[in-house]
Write a protein that binds this DNA or RNA. Sequence first.
DNA 1: ATAACCATGTAAATGGTTACATGATTAG
DNA 2: CTAATCATGTAACCATTTACATGGTTAT
Lengths: 186, 186
Amino acid sequence: MDTRSICLGVLSMGDATGYEIKKLFEDGPFSHFYDAGYGSIYPALNKLLDAGQVTCRHQEQEGRPAKKVYSITAAGERDLLDALHDDPATDRIRSDALVMMFFGHKLSDDQRARVFHKYLGHYAKILQGLHELDTSCDGFGRQFVHGFGLAVYEAAVGYLEEHADEFLEGSTDADRLPSLAARGSS
Amino acid sequence: MDTRSICLGVLSMGDATGYEIKKLFEDGPFSHFYDAGYGSIYPALNKLLDAGQVTCRHQEQEGRPAKKVYSITAAGERDLLDALHDDPATDRIRSDALVMMFFGHKLSDDQRARVFHKYLGHYAKILQGLHELDTSCDGFGRQFVHGFGLAVYEAAVGYLEEHADEFLEGSTDADRLPSLAARGSS
DNA sequence: ATAACCATGTAAATGGTTACATGATTAG
DNA sequence: CTAATCATGTAACCATTTACATGGTTAT
């Protein structure tokens, strides 16, 4: 499943421009499990057009650049179905920030804080976007995936917030602090 | 941060072979936020060797293929520190399975079940691997990232298990089932 | 017997990111 | 006045995946 197939999927929900597709990956219902830049999306749409899987109509606008609105064709729907019935590749996850935090003891205090706050901010932003989505009118797949995203990202943000001090202070020996050790004794 | 830097990071924890590094990405403490195949790792190690950031010693074995054991050099440690102080790229997440589930209404019953169970199995396996890790002797960064992985993957597996029927039956109208609706009334 | 594990690598193909290129409008 | 939004695209570069290549040992 490459960017072409995902674009096809998006277009199966309704016509869209490349710009709009990008926004769905950034803020919309795909934000927590997919991303692609313009450098992927525009070439993908052009390939789909060449292959007859989408059509394109130009739409002039006042005070804005002209748009290219894409629609999926019957051939496109068929190819989408095929792609959806392939064997799914395992998730590809690559987190620079977690690698950096893993080696937290090698980071300067500044970098430790910078990486942590950027990470928390990013997760919080996606979580907020998920909360703002209304999926009550959507099909079960969309609702299921939305719920999954909420569950996972809430866990992530919760953990980061609860353990922020621990990480930023570079110590897991909270138990040694007399003021916090009380709960340890019975 | 490309594969080269991560390999450097791994080697900063102790000598290793390419094969062993791969296993750390698969089962070990990196399994939940990084992956790389042999086709990335072996070329990366050779580039590090050319750049003088690691050294390599050949080690013959009885009844097994010979190994190449890599060690990080002082120059490698310096470059690792540099890489760890770059601006972290945002996480790259790409999930075929979630895309397929998102379009669950377009899947055959077979494919829906196949994708779901493969996904759950994969997450459960990583979660089990995380549980089997003992990080009590590790530094705060490693413990923090380990805890993060546990929190996130437990949320993921929990959600998938709790909502399995909902997804597999292709319905979110559980409330309509009389036998389950009782809790709704007070 | 058959699969999985140990162990390393290369080459071709694929695919994606980044930088470049343009430019008007609107909100702060 | 400055930044962000709208809107599209290409070309060079970079990285990764996949398929190929080899082959003994151990567990089922």
